[in-house]
Structure formats: C-alpha cells, structure tokens
Amino acid sequence: MDDQADRQAFFTDGVTRLMDRLYGAAMRFTRNDDDAEDLIAETLEKAWQKLDTLDDRENFDGWIMRILSNTYISQWRRNRTRSEIFDDEPCTHDLDDRDSLYAKLHQPFLLWWGTPEKAFLDNLVVEDIDRALGKLPDAYREVVIMVEVLGFRYEEVAQQIEVPIGTVRSRLNRARRMLQESLWQTARDAGIVKRDSTREETLNEK
C-alpha cells in the first residue's frame, strides 16, 4: 500500500469509527443539524491537511476531537452575537450546597444503590441532558462539553478559550449548578418529585 492510500485508509477508518462522537460533540456545540455538519466538514478538512503532524496514530481520537473543539472556538463562535452577559466572578466552592440536585433528592440513611437520587439518574434520558445543556449560556456550555464530553483538562480548556484557569473552574461550577437546576425542573415536570415541593415534603412522601 503506498503512502497516500495508507493515509487515506487510516483517516477514513478513524473518522468512520468516531463519526457519532464527532456528530454528538458538534451538535452539543452548535445545537443545530446543519451547523454541526458544517463544523465536522471543516474539522475533517483541517485534520486531513494536518495529518502529518499527528505524531502517534494511537492519539488520533483525542487529536481530531481537539481540532473540532478548536475549530468551533476559533471560528464558529465568532459569528454568534455577543449579547450574552454572564458573571465571571470567581466561583469555586461558594455555591450553597443546599441548592444542589443531590441535596434536594438525597435521603439520609439509605444506601446509594437504593436511593431516590440513584433512581432519578436511572430515569434520566439523553434528551433530558440535551435540553439542560441547551439551556446553558454558550460560554458555560462550551466548558461543560470540553470537560465532560471531550475529557479535556482545565488547563487545555483555558488555552483554547483564552481565559485564566480560574475562569474555567468558575464557569464549570456555575454551569454544573445550572444544569442540575434544569434537571431538577425536569424531574418535577415528570412527576418524579412533587411540583413546588420542598425537600422535607419530598422526603415525607417517600
């Protein structure tokens, strides 16, 4: 097999294998079918052009997902309106834990595998997560995707979005809290927990 054919076969195999992950990440970033496809197409063109810079073929998966993320950050989000205002004040662990999803669901004295919070998670479907992610401001959603979906280190996220690492932590904390609030709302709408219930009321009903 000549070099060109070998490169083509390797690239095609890798992309085919990763297609659903590329599409999933692109959908979470862009929230739109057409934009997701365009983002992947641009990613594939860049990746193909830079394939010689991939030092170890074993690293292909992370390498191409980084190109996707970089492409979104550097080009796509420039086009969005800069109307979003969000609070980038430091926020590491100063959120009131009583507002967390866990605190709302948790019943003391039950083992983890028989708890309401476990049952709640078991009932969560991809669409619930998708909706909750979709409600996050772009700047928050991006860090969640990069950390939770793509598995990037905080330092790498900071470099990609060109903010201090403290800002990454802060956005991540706030994003997670907003995500949990949104999932709590989903649980109430689905009747998993009583609408407008306080924690105590919920516990008394169990």
Binding site: D20, Y23, L121, I129, E148, V149
Partner: peptide, 10 residues
Amino acid sequence: KVAAAGEVKT
C-alpha cells in the same frame, strides 16, 4: 450521563 450525551447517532 452528561458524557454519554456527547455521542449521537449521525
């Protein structure tokens, strides 16, 4: 759960 939402059938 959140990580799993990153894989979507194309």
